[in-house]
Amino acid sequence: MANDLVLYTEDLIENPSPRVPVVLCLDTSGSMNGDPIRELAQGVAQFYASVFDDEIARYSAEIGIVTFGNAGVQRAADFGPVEQRPNVTLGAGGATPMGEAVCEALELLDERKRQYQEAGVDYYQPWLVLMTDGAPTDDIAAAVHRVGELVRRKKLSVFPIGIGAGADMGTLQQFSPGRTPLRLQGLAFGKFFEWLSASVQRVSASTPGEDVPLDVDGIKGWGSI
């Protein structure tokens, strides 16, 4: 355990690559039980793997995971070196406290930003990937407001994804002032995470002032609007 702490700090100060923090905010409510949760877990594992495979992304991308549903809101994975892929087990059950989860995800990102600043590590503005298959069971107003503020000030990029026919796209749209939420084709998590890791790589290559040039053609492959 002590070893992990030292590695954790050492990575922050030893690795000079500018970071791209990505927080996955994932729905693990009862309706995800069965195939959906299994596919999602596999997709997440694949995400870690493909980020790891690219040398530049491996040392730039940082992944945090917040789940909502099973056992309320949980920090399933904290930010840290991608090499130490956490064993993320996702279990489905319970309600859909999306509002609380999004707030938690924003907290997680804030903390990480403070750590970057203390260590003098460069970072790009974080990404929030929000995935749900239904509608929220708690009040999302506060979360929507906070997200909106951050996006407007260009301090956050949001990727809202609806899973399956039951996903409430209207809610997702609220979280995404600048970007139309996408509905995942079937359970094509793999393709989505592949696209996500490719996009992460592009971030550090962007010239200042330009928006991150995401490969929209790639999205058409897996999602439908």
């Binding site: 600043q117 003098g120 590590v121 460069d122 503005q125």
Partner: peptide, 25 residues
Amino acid sequence: HPGKPPYSHQGGEDPSKNVRKQHFP
């Protein structure tokens, strides 16, 4: 300083903002 940009500093942000801030620490 293998890989470390000169304008990286505590309280900094992304590389572009750091350069524009011009704080060499």
